[in-house]
């Protein structure tokens, strides 16, 4: 017999770190977003102008990807806390993963087709 200590998959700590790392990035992005908005003269100011400023398309794409990852950990925690039937919980987890991947692709499409 192989003696094993069952200690879990350690995904708890990994997700804990990921949730905070993505949060820090989103805080930085939010500050950059506000600074870029303030730097654009008000007569030219639009969401489009902010998003097409140098580097902003890449930073915004990264923002939406981190947001979806962050949201996944958040809604998973909510389902784990409040949804007790295992089948329903798993179904909700799958649904959350699918819609979040869809949202990430949707955001990427918007940003790529934004034009210069």
């Amino acid at each position: 017999m192989v003696k094993r200590n069952v200690v879990g998959a350690h995904y708890g700590l990994r997700d804990w770190i990921a949730q905070r790392a993505t949060a820090v990035y989103m805080v930085l992005y939010s500050v950059i977003f506000v600074l870029v908005s303030l730097a654009i003269p008000s007569e030219h100011l639009s969401l489009r102008a902010v998003l097409t400023a140098p580097c902003m398309r890449f930073l915004t794409l990264l923002f939406f990807l981190t947001l979806c990852y962050h949201a996944w950990i958040g809604v998973r925690d909510i389902f784990m806390d409040y949804v007790k039937p295992l089948g329903l919980r798993l179904a909700l987890h799958v649904a959350a993963i699918l819609v979040l991947i869809g949202y990430a692709a949707w955001a990427a499409k918007i940003l790529l087709l934004l034009g210069a």
Binding site: S46, L47, R48, L51, A71, G74, V75, I78, A96, V99, Y103, W106, A107, I110, L113, L114
Partner: peptide
Amino acid sequence: HRISGAALFLFLPFLLCMLEREAFIA
């Protein structure tokens, strides 16, 4: 914090619609 997070998740498609609207129709 939890409720606001859940609300943001639920209304993310609405926000993406707004983004799409602003980005393409200006």
